[in-house]
Design a binder for these strands. Structure first.
Length: 720
DNA sequence: GCGTTTCTCTTTTTT
DNA sequence: AGAGAAACGC
């Protein structure tokens, strides 16, 4: 047997060596999914079933793509450069760069990231005189992206009402604006290359002939358009090897369609779905808990993880009085783990929403424990870096109005809103870019604007023959960014980041530069700008030392740790209140919990707090239903478990429990924070009150039954 | 045109 | 509570 295949379990082996046909691999958490994917590629090449040239492997994140390349280069002694392994967006970018003419794009088209897109839409809304109360730019952005992700152009969206009609008009105007400026947003990369391939028969055939094997990672996260894209590209008889886990589908809120897995199985007549259920990550108790939780979901393809590792430690559960107490307890526990020799980097602190990190960070900081928070601003998203990139974008394409607007008055050069409005009107009237309109501007408002135009021209002229890093340096100097930040009190970090940008461009050229030949000196620049948009850079912050890892459950997907804390397990928080109402939302929350639990190798802590500060208000919470969904035998309560998870009973909520406001319910016998019992809704906590006397109403958090406003005079509430 | 105050909003996020 | 954006005043 080839050494490649050694150590694979029977299911993994079956998946890796499947004959050429469509395949669906249901790969549970920690079941060796990436290994199967990369070994499959290596095996196809080694057995001469495919050349590196004939393989297309697609992932969702740059990290996953890199991981795949790294592992492959360890398995195969070949040059991987010709292989198409990357993210959906990265591969589409590659395709569109290679065929920009056929795709109707300028050679140096720019990519708008989320923030760029939003500011482009804001600009559009202003220029169209759209009421931004009725059509908030954020919503428009969501609307436009949602249409694109369904594969729909403005012309093919159906309008059922006036409101939608108007949104479609705006979408249409947005399309025109992007085309005029030569920019594409993330969704456009997908849609544009999909359209390119479906319209251009020659190209389609070329790529369909070329890619005989298409492999897809995290298939459960694909959206409608990505599914169609795969279908189109594989339409010439390629085999599609899809790997995914429906139980880990946690991106439905942004268009991912778990249903694609079922559709794939049916449409591609996948006879036997291979299930990878042996888990190599977690101890038995942790897996049992995960399995028990996910069993509560109806919509599943079905799968049960198992391990031959022992059951390990019980899952520890802690009930805190408050979010503060919870944080303090976690810190104490971490200190102890640290003393026992656990590496801090092997301890993860997970939470449902970012707002929760604050208390935790504070507690860690006070205790002097090093920690690292994921999910902050990334390198290429920092303001100063985006400013510098905007100048570079203007060098590549002066008609990029998004970049233009960003820096036309930064650093300030006396160009205010009024002159910009004038300029925008003129540009609109003559169908010119903002930059192009400056020339047309007659003397009056134009002096400072002309100077800016001259600056851009000057930078462009100087840039032509420079190597990229010097071009970046020059842009930072000439634009005045450099001196601006040097004169700023707190500017040292920003200056350092700008220097870092020069370094980044240098290493980019060293690694990837000069690959495409035959273009003028700006091709490195265009490639670098695309790189900056597509790969915003690692979440920076001291990844150097041994630090506790803090992140949302979403960003923990794909990672694993020896010790995991899942904090804030409260109804309304996790599951999130916005998701509790519909079954679909709740099931996604449950999958999220499943993902969280399966991150842990050896030890898992669950914690929740009776009270929590949220949006400046104290909220009273009951324990998450997800805690109740774990068999009690797997749990070890560190605090006494009473009755139902929310329990403490009168007097135990905290030292100060405000009575309902004076004169309102003085004689009602109820207080905020009190536990109550209701005939229909069960056990709950009073979280708010309003009205007085006979009109007194109280808001009660009933946990599973949700949040309810009840009139004391009517509802049968009894103290619990 | 620019600095300060007020108002609003608040799930998850990669590309 | 706290960030970011819009409104306000000089």
């Amino acid at each position: 047997m080839s050494p490649l295949l050694q150590g694979l379990n029977p299911e993994q082996l079956a998946a890796v060596t499947l004959p050429q046909q469509h395949a669906l691999i249901l790969a549970g958490a920690g079941s060796g999914k990436t290994r199967v994917l990369t070994t499959r590629i290596a095996w196809l090449i080694q057995t001469n079933q495919a050349g590196p040239h004939g393989i297309l492997a697609v992932t969702f994140t740059n990290k996953a793509a890199r991981e795949m390349l790294t592992r492959l280069s360890a398995m195969l002694p070949i040059n991987l450069r010709g292989m198409w392994i990357g993210t959906f967006h990265g591969l589409c970018n590659r395709l569109l760069r290679a065929h920009h003419r056929e795709a109707g794009l300028p050679q140096l088209f720019q990519i708008l990231d989320q923030a760029d897109q939003l500011s482009a839409i804001k600009r559009l809304v202003k220029s169209l005189d759209v009421d931004d109360e009725k059509f908030p730019p954020r919503e428009l952005q969501h609307f436009i992206n949602a249409q694109k992700e369904q594969g729909l152009r403005a012309s093919s969206v159906e309008a059922w009402d006036e409101f939608t009609k108007r949104r479609i008009e705006i979408y249409e105007a947005y399309e025109r604006q992007c085309n005029r400026e030569g920019v594409v947003d993330f969704a456009e990369l997908l849609l544009r290359s999909f359209e390119l391939l479906s319209r251009n028969e020659i190209l389609r055939h070329h790529y369909q002939e070329r890619f005989r094997h298409i492999l897809v990672d995290e298939f459960q996260d694909t959206n409608v358009l990505q599914y169609r894209w795969l279908k189109l590209l594989g339409g010439g008889g390629a085999s599609i090897f899809a790997v995914g886990d429906d139980d880990q589908s946690i991106y439905g809120f942004r268009g991912a369609e778990v249903g694609n897995m079922r559709d794939f199985e049916r449409e591609y007549k996948v006879g036997r779905v291979i299930r990878l259920e042996q888990n190599y990550r977690s101890h038995g108790n942790i897996l049992d808990a995960a399995n028990a939780i996910i069993k509560h979901n109806e919509a599943r393809l079905g799968k049960n993880l198992w391990t031959d590792a022992g059951s390990g430690e019980p899952i520890r559960v802690f009930e805190a009085m408050s979010d503060l107490d919870e944080a303090r307890w976690i810190v104490e526990e971490i200190k102890e783990l640290s003393r026992d020799g656990h590496a801090r980097a092997e301890i993860a602190l997970l939470y449902r929403s970012n707002a929760q990190s604050r208390v935790l960070e504070h507690a860690l900081f006070s205790a002097g424990l090093p920690y690292r928070v994921y999910g902050g601003l990334r390198f290429f998203e920092r303001a100063e870096v985006k400013h510098a990139l905007a100048y570079l974008r203007l060098i590549a394409n002066p008609d990029d109005d998004t970049a233009f607007s960003r820096v036309v008055n930064f650093p300030t050069r006396g160009i205010g809103a009024r002159s910009l409005e004038q300029l925008a009107d003129l540009a609109k009237a003559r169908s010119l870019s903002l930059h192009g309109a400056i020339r047309e501007l007659s003397g009056k408002a134009g002096a400072s604007l002309s100077a800016f135009a001259a600056l851009i021209e000057n930078m462009r002229a100087g840039a032509e023959d420079l190597p990229l890093p010097e071009m970046v340096d020059q842009a930072i100097e000439l634009s005045g960014l450099s001196s601006h930040y040097r004169n700023e009190k707190e500017g040292a970090d920003r200056v350092a980041n700008l220097d870092e940008l020069i370094n980044a461009s240098a290493s980019f050229v060293a690694e990837e530069g000069g690959r495409e030949v035959g273009e003028e000196g700006l091709s490195d620049l265009a490639a670098f700008l695309a790189h900056a948009s597509l790969e915003a850079g690692e979440h920076q912050a001291g990844d150097s030392d041994d630090a506790v890892q803090l992140m949302t459950v979403h960003s923990a997907k794909g990672l694993e740790f020896n010790v995991v804390f899942i904090s804030g397990l409260e109804e309304g928080l996790f599951p999130h209140e916005n998701a509790i109402l519909e079954e679909k939302g709740l099931e996604e929350e449950r999958r999220l919990m499943y993902v969280a639990v399966t991150r842990a190798r050896a030890r898992l802590y669950l914690s929740f707090a009776q009270t929590r500060m949220l949006h400046g208000q104290t909220r009273y919470n009951v324990a998450s239903r997800f805690v109740d969904e774990i068999p009690v035998a797997l749990l070890k309560w560190l605090t006494p478990k009473l009755r139902n998870a929310y329990t403490a009973g009168a007097g135990a909520v905290g030292p100060s429990r405000p009575a309902l406001r004076q004169g309102r319910a003085g004689d009602s016998g109820f207080a905020i924070g009190q536990n109550v019992q209701h005939g229909k809704f069960g056990l709950g906590v009073i979280v708010d009150a309003e009205g007085s006397g006979n009109d007194t109403r109280v808001q009660v958090n009933f946990g599973h039954a949700g949040m309810k406003w009840l009139a004391l005079a009517v509802a049968k509430l009894t103290p619990a």
